[in-house]
Every structure is written in C-alpha cells, then in structure tokens.
C-alpha cells in the first residue's frame, strides 16, 4: 500500500495567545491550519484581533503563548539573523501601508525585489506589470507622499505581490478602494493564487467573500469563532 502523506499546512497555529501589558488579551487560544493554495478570509469587527494575528504570522510580534508554524518555519526558533528566511516567503499588504514617502512608487515596490538581488530589468518589468494591473501605470515616478490613500494602498499591495510570495497576508486590502479598484486587487490576488500562492485576507468587508467558495474565519474579542466554514449562502 503506497499512501502519500498530505502536505503540511503552510500556516498552522496551535493555541496561540497574545497579551499586552497590563492585562489586555488581544488574542486567545487561536488554533487553525491553512493549506497551500488556499484563500482564507479573516473577518471580524475593528479591534477583533485581525491585525494582531497578521502581525504574529509575519513575525512582526511574538506570541505570548502557543505555537506558530509558517512556511515551514517554527516561528519561536527564528531570530533577527534568520527572520529574513521567513519574510522572503511571505508578502504583507499592511493596513498602514508602510511606504517610504520620499521615494517613488516604483522604488517602493522594487525594494522587496532588491533585497533578494533580482536583476534591474526583471524588477522594472515586474513593477510595470503590477502597476498596470492595479491601474497605477501613470504613477510610476510619483512620490508616494503625493498619492491618495487608495493609491497608497494599491502600492502596498503591489509591493507585497512583487516577489511572487508563497503566502500573501493582506490587512484590510480594500479599505480605501472603490469598486473598480477593489475588483482589480481581487483579480491580482486570484492570479497569485492560481500560481500557488496562499492568501490570508483580513477584512471586515463581507462583500469580498460573499458569493465565493472560500473559507472564512471570524474573530470576535480575540477569539476565533469559526475556523473555516464557507460563508453562508455560498455553494462549495
């Protein structure tokens, strides 16, 4: 009998909690697993703990309790010398964008490709392609400080997607976008997913996953209410 083991999940959390002093419990006993190639929506009201969870997965913060395994790395064993190994495998679109205001749109996207020593020609082609997909072609040389919030948000998403990451974490990726640009962003996400990227999208905008056959996890008060049911009303 030749039975192959299922591939390990790319994101796995076991009883993860996060406390902030003096006694704020941001996340409590979170456990779930996400397989390679999945698109999972993380929903919940503001303050539910979505951003904290994304910060833990991207190792911007350390968990107070529990175990996190992301892209094959046990996060408790990563230190400042090895953290880049994880971060090169994940792309993060931050809620606060984290752009360099005195640098151009192209520079801000290219930075994630420069750190892995991509060729200039490859970087330029990828940046132009992403900007075209996100309707920002004309902003190539514009300083990000001169962009609107919606444009900045798309630049942040483009930077997260630039390196063809194994995992893409998006924190409220469409919070500042109109319907047309939301569709463009989601189209980019699905394209990445077709190429094998696993996506975890934190959003409180239910229209993003309504009507789609995707897993939805809901956080409330730092606790995970559901670990992966399809949104009611959708067809598996």
């Amino acid at each position: 009998m030749n039975q192959e083991l299922p591939p390990p999940p790319v994101i796995e959390l076991i009883k993860v909690s996060k406390f902030y002093p003096p006694d704020v419990e941001a996340l409590s006993d979170i456990s779930f697993a996400i397989d390679k190639g999945e698109i999972v929506y993380l929903t919940g009201m503001s303050g539910a703990g979505k951003t904290t969870l994304i910060r833990l997965i991207s190792r911007m913060e350390k968990e107070s309790q529990g175990m996190l395994d992301v892209a094959g790395f046990d996060l408790s064993k990563l230190n400042h010398r090895t953290i880049h190994l994880l971060r090169r495998k994940i792309g993060v679109a931050y809620q606060d964008f984290k752009l360099l205001p005195n640098r151009t749109v192209a520079d801000n996207i290219a930075i994630s490709m420069e750190v892995v020593y991509q060729k200039t020609s490859v970087i330029e082609a990828r940046v132009r392609n992403l900007l075209e997909q996100l309707n920002l072609s004309k902003k190539y040389d514009t300083l990000t400080a001169e962009l609107s919030s919606g444009e900045q948000q798309r630049v942040s998403i483009a930077r997260a997607a630039a390196n063809h990451p194994e995992i893409l974490l998006a924190d409220e990726p469409t919070g500042n976008l109109d319907a047309e640009n939301t569709a463009r962003v989601m189209s980019l996400f699905y394209q990445l997913n077709r190429q094998g990227c696993t996506l975890l999208i934190a959003t409180h905008d239910k229209s993003l996953f309504r009507g789609h056959n995707r897993r939805v996890m809901e956080l409330r008060g730092g606790r995970l209410l559901t670990t992966g049911h399809l949104f009611p009303g959708t067809q598996p």
Binding site: H84, R87, K98, I111, S112, V115, N163
Partner: peptide
Amino acid sequence: VQKLELLRLVGATT
C-alpha cells in the same frame, strides 16, 4: 529608521 524597518519586513538580511 522607517526604511530599515521596511527592509527588515521585506526580508533583507543583516
């Protein structure tokens, strides 16, 4: 600092 923090986040080595 802002740039260094970002470099760390996008996977730059020490």
